[in-house]
Design a protein around this nucleic acid. Structure first.
Lengths: 345, 345
DNA sequence: CACCCTTTGGGAAACGTTACCCACAGCCCG
DNA sequence: CGGGCTGTGGGTAACGTTTCCCAAAGGGTG
């Protein structure tokens, strides 16, 4: 085996010559386009197989499509994304489209770099998962390539959206805890100051959902929200703060599983037991929430469904770029585990 | 904002006209190529900025490079990969290269699809992380594009490799346990039958390392290996089997953290305590190993370093495709936590 | 001062594919 | 039997960039 053999690749011209037809004809077969008889198709396909021809995606992109879909992923570590991704790739595996992931790096600048790179490569469509970029940037991207935004509330005429109902998810937790008898239910949120992001980011919607659900249960006075960040450390600090309250909460609803991990740590340090003294719930139903030693009550977003819908919407929009924008909202489900129980007497 | 405005993009021709030079000149500036005076460069760069020009990667690829690096990731869920990825993207963020991830889907077929797609898109180089494909396929890929293989032992003249020393990692654990006083140390491995994979796959190397280390300590008779798979269930089943032994092991070295999770579950079910009755160690130092309630002793592979090296080797090979292949081997470190302690008296 | 080399710049032909349009044959219909 | 469809196939000009080459100008050298 040669180190990187310089052998010329088989091109459409070679296929055409071998099949004794024009390159136009081969191109038509490749794209399943109109204007080729069944016999012609058969002949061309045979030539393709015999020569082992594969089209050059870049060259195709010069005139037509690249058959490439870009998925912007802000943070690969987030154990919730793989589900979405499976949904996307699953929907696309029977098509000609190939999915590539762009590491977003969790910042506006990194996100911009990736989306620009995708546009430079003329990807046919882009799926942005839980982007942190301002809406104007999303719209700018969407104005030059078909785009679906996942996990941002708020709609735009230029891109489609798929979200899980975070308000509903927050209620699921609050109702579950209240159903067990809890009244002093506290919440740890990810601090959000920017007004449009308060309206669009899932973390803010979860906090809103918490407040709404508490009020609906007549527990308005027990509303207690600590603002930190969606990290383990944020959970730890938030819990420390809650544990310093004159009257301790009997349950903590952390806005994300990873936050709940910090809470569990702080609670253990304080010498309290879970769920004996305090119940803890997270959000996202991440892999580790299910692990035996943790067994964290959480909310499952239908990740697979989210991905499937995003892929579907994107294909539709690639097919018809001027169809009106669509918003899909899915419902989460509660996954009760061993970190929540009746409050102490 | 128009839905997907049809506005023509700025091309190199526009830039040339605006700067009153030839397209050749602009191209030279873009590539930092020889044959452009400083004044010329300045003039062209200004025009580029004024027009907001961005080169079309596909068109570039037709003649030259695409400035795109593909990273094949077999399983996004593996919490060890993000570290490697950070190392890669970190090394590349000051270059013109853009990284895209191809979801490998943990199977030969899926891996082949992704690598072919990368080649079809004329990516300048490919990094394959822990591929499961047979070596012939790796060499085939490497023969058409510069390639670095991460996490496969065994070298090839056509691709570079970066591995962490799994034999050494296994010793770290065995020595650690023996140092605490354990003698009956069992191991749960991922079953591997194919002979070349036994030599190349990390899981097989870990099992070998375990045996070697046991023999080196004079514990050859206590060698006890159970073959299941690197999954939580595999750990659970493996542990069940070990717990049915007439003389229980006092420590279990699971070949991966996720396996250790299954072990912890089985041990808890058996009414035994960790590390009181039995010590448990994993491998990979995944995120959840560090979580408070778990606190699993593990082995840390220098993921970041692995990624940095892979990126460096790839750039070198892109620059000189016929330089001899290089193998980099890094050393892991032990991360002792609360699941390992002295054996019961 | 003739010659050659170096520096700077540009013209034009690739690169591999698709879009656009035209030609031709066969057929149906009035 | 003429006119207009429909189905089939191909010629050719894009698409946006880089590479290969050549030309001209300037400067050093014998």
């Amino acid at each position: 085996m040669e180190p990187s053999a310089p052998s010329r690749r088989v091109t459409i011209v070679d296929v055409a010559r071998h099949a004794q037809v024009s390159t136009t004809a081969v191109s038509k077969v490749l794209r399943n386009a109109y204007g080729a008889s069944p016999e012609m198709r058969a002949k061309v396909r045979r030539a393709i197989d015999e020569l082992g021809y594969r089209p050059h995606a870049g060259a195709r992109g010069l005139r037509g499509q690249t058959y490439t879909i870009g998925v912007m992923l802000p943070d690969i570590r987030n154990p919730f994304f793989p589900e979405i991704l499976d949904g996307i790739t699953g929907s696309l595996e029977d098509t000609e489209y190939q999915v590539f992931l762009g590491p977003g790096g969790n910042g506006e600048k990194a996100e911009a770099r990736v989306t620009e790179a995708m546009i430079d490569r003329r990807m046919d469509g882009i799926i942005m998962i839980a982007p942190v970029s301002p809406r104007t940037h999303l719209e700018q991207v969407a104005s030059s390539v078909p785009t679906v935004v996942v996990g941002r509330h708020g709609s735009s005429p230029v891109y489609d959206t798929v979200v899980d109902d975070d308000v509903e998810g927050a209620s699921l937790i609050v109702d579950h805890l209240a159903g067990l008898g809890h009244r002093r239910i506290a919440h740890i949120e990810h601090r959000e100051t920017d007004p449009t992001r308060r309206a669009e980011m899932p973390n803010a919607r979860r906090a809103d959902g918490y407040r709404q659900a508490m009020r609906a249960l007549g527990l308005a006075e027990s509303i207690d929200v600590v603002s930190t960040s969606y990290t383990q450390e944020g959970g730890y600090k938030g819990a420390k703060e809650l544990l310093a309250r004159p009257r301790l909460p009997t349950a903590v609803f952390a806005g994300a599983d990873i936050v709940a991990m910090g809470v569990l740590e702080a609670v253990a340090e304080a010498g309290l037991s879970v769920p004996g003294d305090i119940s803890v719930a997270g959000y996202d139903n991440t892999t580790f929430a299910a692990l035996g030693p943790i067994s964290l009550t959480s909310v499952d977003q239908a990740g697979h469904e989210i991905g499937r819908n995003a892929a579907r919407l994107l294909l539709e929009r690639i097919a018809d770029r001027r169809r009106p924008s669509v918003q899909v909202r899915l419902s989460p489900t509660l996954v009760p585990r061993r970190t929540t129980a009746r409050p102490p007497e």
